[in-house]
């Protein structure tokens, strides 16, 4: 199945798909994001930053059980 979610360009939340276990049902980062900007793409099985609404707050990174999430400061503020 092709990808169904278009990731924002230069996402401030990056997922290491080699470490991510979303295919096993983990939704930890998606659940913890206050702005609800992360989504699981049913097409290619990857978690993506679907909205450019990141508060660079870190629950997604801290709650990830495999340390697959890295947050950087959004470009406009960097």
């Amino acid at each position: 199945m092709p990808a169904t979610i278009r990731e924002v360009p230069n996402p401030s939340v990056r997922i290491d798909h080699g470490k991510c276990i979303a295919d096993k049902g983990c939704r930890s980062c998606i659940d913890s994001c206050p702005l609800d900007i992360l989504a699981f793409d049913e097409g290619d099985g990857k978690v993506k930053m679907a909205y450019d609404e990141c508060w660079y707050c870190l629950p997604c990174e801290h709650d990830c059980p495999t340390k697959a999430v890295t947050v950087s400061i959004p470009y406009l503020l960097r």
Binding site: P34, L35, C54, W55, C57, P74, L76, L77
Partner: peptide
């Protein structure tokens, strides 16, 4: 001042 809608002091929710 950054122009970034979600670059707020408060949690933007």
């Amino acid at each position: 001042a950054s122009g970034y809608l979600f670059g707020t002091y408060e949690n933007p929710t």
